[in-house]
Amino acid sequence: MLHLLIITLLAIVIAKQPLFNELGLGSLPLAIVLGMLSGAFFRGLGFASTDSTPSTSSLFCQQKLLRLGIILLGFGLTFQQVAQLGWQALVIDLAIITLVLLIGISVGIHCLGMSRELAVLTSVGSAVCGAAAIMATEPVVKGGHRQVSVAVATVVLFGSLSLLLYPVLFTILHIPSEQYGIFIGSTVHEVAQAVAAGQTIGPEALQTAIMTKLIRVLCLAPVVIALGLLLFRDKQACNESKDRSRKLPVTFPRFIGFFVLAVLVNSLFQLPEAVHGVISLISQFSLTIAMAAMGYNTRWSTLREAGLKPILLAALLFVLLISTGLSLNLLLYA
């Protein structure tokens, strides 16, 4: 447990440094990278077990603290934020989420031959809110920490690439800053990356980028529920019992319900800034240590075995995000 605390604190400190802050590399992707590096280092020296089964403390971080962090994220969102940007931003976000999920899952499974779990995790990371969405979807998908690590790696790669591309596109397209901020928020993977990309354009773009991105984060709960209903209703236990006609009931992730409740409370009541600060700190710590545990338990062989398929799928979704998001923004805000 001590090594996970050290990785977590180190990731939080590094994420606050100007260079990493400008690149939009938040503590979550940094924690999983540091966790992977430290895990490989200690296993190579023989100081850590080579057993693929995570320890009890790692499982606690990956499951319990992860859910706590996602629930607390809800206190940073309000339903009123949806109304401030107008119906266009909501339509753009919903259209992009739906399109990316449909194409990503279909192409991943049927064209690239990926497992259903990995295709869903990779797609949901691009469609909704990066690593946090992947981690929130895992309890329904039950893909395991290996596939989660691969999916998060694609978010880090293409989310970072977007930070180099978006300022260049702004100089070429000559779109008003506020509208370009909506384009950023509706297409960039991580919240931290949306903040970094918006800052490079200007204060107007930063504000609309954050608000649009938060609408996508707010869609996390219905997306997870829909995936559970549509894709993971038939559990593996049905196949093992050879009773294919029996359908097990959908397992509703209770922490998603608490997430929505947190958003509702924050929408109805104005919490003190000090309370928001404490909640944000606990949420960041919980999510970061969950990522650290995920990275620490990841084997490099897992990423090698995954091959180029997740990268190809993420690249396709990256192009889809930019092209669709830009087209919808130009169409609806013409």
Rank of each mutant, 00 (worst) to 15 (best):
A205T: 06
L231F: 15
I172Y: 12
S123K: 06
N239K: 13
T98L: 12
C61W: 10
A95W: 04
A334N: 14
L328F: 08
L5G: 12
V150S: 05
G44N: 09
F42K: 08
I12H: 03
A83R: 15
G257D: 10
V250W: 11
A15H: 09
A274G: 09
A334P: 15
A48V: 06
R43F: 08
N329G: 08
L287S: 06
L10G: 08
T251C: 12
R216Y: 04
V150D: 00
L85E: 05
I210G: 01
I70R: 05
A292N: 03
Q81F: 09
V156Y: 07
V188A: 06
L321R: 10
L10P: 05
V250T: 12
G307I: 10
L30G: 02
G159M: 03
Q62G: 13
S160Q: 04
V33M: 11
S58K: 03
R304Y: 10
E138G: 06
V150Y: 00
R216G: 01
R304E: 10
L218T: 10
N329V: 15
Q80V: 08
M211W: 01
S57M: 12
I311M: 11
V148T: 14
G277H: 02
I279D: 01
T53L: 12
Q193R: 06
T171G: 15
S267G: 11
M36E: 00
S106G: 08
S27P: 05
V82P: 00
R116V: 11
V188E: 11
L77W: 04
L45F: 13
I14H: 02
